[in-house]
């Protein structure tokens, strides 16, 4: 029995070792070498003393925060109402469908929609406002990034709401809570796990979006992803690129521990 179990665990173990742990270790290892291949801590010193990188980090966090916020604001009500609709599975499928399309294709589609001769500007001209500059603005970048991330937020929230026992809601109503109170005191806290999972799934990839910053943002929006791309492809300073990667991985762990479940359990024990 035991041996069989080990046998089943092997593929997972190797998968994790080769495709998760090894790459992370390699990135961490690379980050200690300068451009001449000598061992150094200089990359980290550069990162944490350079105004450029720090500002870029702030920029990335700020945009990721905005993207997550907008995604959450749209996704929570969507997931909530989805729960009460008739053909749940069909609607869900329609929400998931866009994720089957390649990100690059979606970005190009938005270029077509937002460009000077695009459908949005044609509409604006039609109603008399005249064409506006939409592409290469913060607004368009946030819009497209939010659009792309929405399914990853809706799904965990939807699942959390589905798992919610209707009896709790009925009980809260019976005990005299109005709709708003039921939502803020019962439904929202009890679906918090879904929100947290969604925030994790959206915030972290948003930190390093780099294709969209160029295609939709026209490089007017600069995130850490842009810098990593440049260090690996142009300056060939893999050490510095890896350093930024390590910082992102650490940021990821911080987000995970802030939004993770285990902390809450710990607090419960203390109570």
């Amino acid at each position: 029995m035991k041996r069989k179990q080990v046998l089943f665990e092997m593929p997972y173990f190797f998968w994790l070792a080769f495709f998760v742990i090894a790459p992370i270790l390699l990135i961490a290892y690379q980050s200690f070498f300068n451009i001449r291949g000598q061992f150094t801590l200089g990359n980290y010193a550069t990162y944490f003393t350079s105004a450029t990188y720090l500002r870029m980090t702030l920029n990335s966090v700020w945009y990721a925060f905005l993207i997550t916020l907008f995604t959450l604001l749209i996704s929570y009500p969507t997931a909530y109402f989805l729960h009460y609709t008739k053909h749940k599975q069909l609607w869900l499928l329609l929400i998931i469908l866009p994720t089957w399309i390649n990100l690059l294709l979606k970005a190009y589609a938005f270029i077509g929609i937002f460009s000077q001769d695009g459908s949005v500007n044609q509409f604006l001209t039609f109603i008399g406002i005249g064409p506006q500059q939409i592409l290469f603005t913060d607004a368009s970048f946030l819009f497209v990034a939010t659009y792309i991330q929405i399914p990853f937020m809706i799904l965990p929230i939807f699942n959390a709401i589905e798992d919610l026992q209707p009896s709790y809601i009925n009980a809260s109503r019976d005990l005299g809570a109005n709709n708003w109170q039921t939502f803020t005191r019962i439904i929202f806290p009890m679906t918090m796990s879904g929100v947290k999972a969604g925030v994790q799934a959206v915030f972290i990839p948003s930190l390093s979006l780099f294709m969209l910053t160029r295609l939709i943002g026209g490089n007017r929006v600069i995130t850490l992803g842009t810098a990593i791309e440049e260090h690996f492809l142009v300056t060939m300073n893999w050490g510095m690129g890896s350093t930024i990667g390590v910082v992102l991985i650490i940021a990821m762990f911080i987000i995970m521990s802030l939004t993770g479940e285990h902390k809450k359990k710990g607090r419960k024990h203390n109570d």
């Binding site: 001449r36 450029t52 490089n219 600069i222 440049e230 300056t235 060939m236 300073n237 510095m240």
Partner: peptide
Amino acid sequence: PELIGTYNELYLEFK
């Protein structure tokens, strides 16, 4: 490589 780094750093700052 260092000088290429400088060119790119300045360029990134401009961006």
